[in-house]
Every structure is written in C-alpha cells, then in structure tokens.
Amino acid sequence: MIICPNCHHENAAGSTFCGECGQRLPETSAQSGAASQVTEKTTTQSSDQPQSSPSRQSREAIPAKKRPSGLKWVVLVVVLVIVLGGGALVYRGMFSKQQQVAKITQALVDGDKATLAKSLVSDDPNLKINETTVAPLATYVKEHSSYA
C-alpha cells in the first residue's frame, strides 16, 4: 500500500498516481526496480518488431483532470446573475411608471373601479382608497372622456 501525501488515500502497491486526487505518488524501492526492468525490456526489443500500443497499466497511471472546486461556485454565480438580471428586466417592464400609468388610464376608460382602487395610492394615511371612494372619479372620466 502506498499512502498519498496529499489526500492520504490508500493506493495499491506499484501505483504511480493517487486514484483519489491524481497526486504523483513517491516511488518506492520496488517501483524503481520495476521501472528499470521495463526500460531494459523496451531497449532490448528489436527494431523490426512493430511497437505495441501503450499498456493498460500506463494509460491508467495518467491522472484524470479534475475541475477546480471553485468552478462550481463561478457557474452558480453566473447563473444567479443571469436569473436576477432577467427578473429585473421583466419586473421593470411590467411595473414601470409607464406601465402603471397605462393600467390606471385603462381602468378609468373602462370604468373598472376594482382595478382602479387597487392601482391608486395616496400619501394621506387617512384617505381610504376603495371602489366606493374612486366611484366619483370613474363617473367624472365617463362624462369627460378627454380627461383620461
């Protein structure tokens, strides 16, 4: 067993890289001897024999690339900014001053007292705005359509 100096994961003997974090593992005396035997074998092969593809063990020894842990936070922040920005644009389009004035004007023209009562506000805390209190305004606008 070889213990990774980075993450302390137990790896099989003869491993070159940690199976958990990809850290290069320190060589043991058995590994260095095996490495020299592999080097001797490859140098003694005749040049007329075709070269074989890399062995499975050497392909597995290459550590897998890991995403940086901060990448998920960057993606999360970008998505959050896009969602909030889109929400702000929709809110601005639906509840801008122009949209509010258009809604009140349409309620006046239609004589819709309920919508008019919900749309109007006042600085005076004693003034109660409801369908009854906006009725005179709705009546006036019906009689004088140019006012709207």
Rank of each mutant, 00 (worst) to 15 (best):
A30R: 02
Q31F: 04
Q31E: 06
Q31T: 02
A34H: 09
Q37M: 11
T39F: 11
E40M: 12
K41M: 14
T42Y: 10
T43S: 15
T44V: 14
S46A: 13
S46K: 15
S47A: 13
S47L: 13
D48Q: 06
Q51Y: 03
Q51H: 04
S52G: 15
S52T: 12
S52L: 12
S53Y: 05
P54Y: 02
P54H: 10
S58A: 13
R59C: 07
E60G: 11
P63R: 03
A64Q: 14
A64K: 12
K66E: 07
K66N: 09
R67H: 04
P68R: 12
W73F: 06
W73Y: 07
L80Y: 09
V81I: 03
V83S: 04
G85I: 00
G85F: 00
G86V: 01
Y91H: 07
Y91F: 09
R92V: 03
S96G: 12
Q100Y: 03
V101R: 02
A102T: 09
Q106A: 14
Q106H: 12
A107S: 12
A107N: 05
V109E: 08
V109K: 12
D110S: 08
G111S: 05
G111T: 07
D112K: 08
D112G: 09
K113Y: 00
K118Q: 15
S122F: 04
D124C: 04
N126G: 04
K128A: 03
N130M: 08
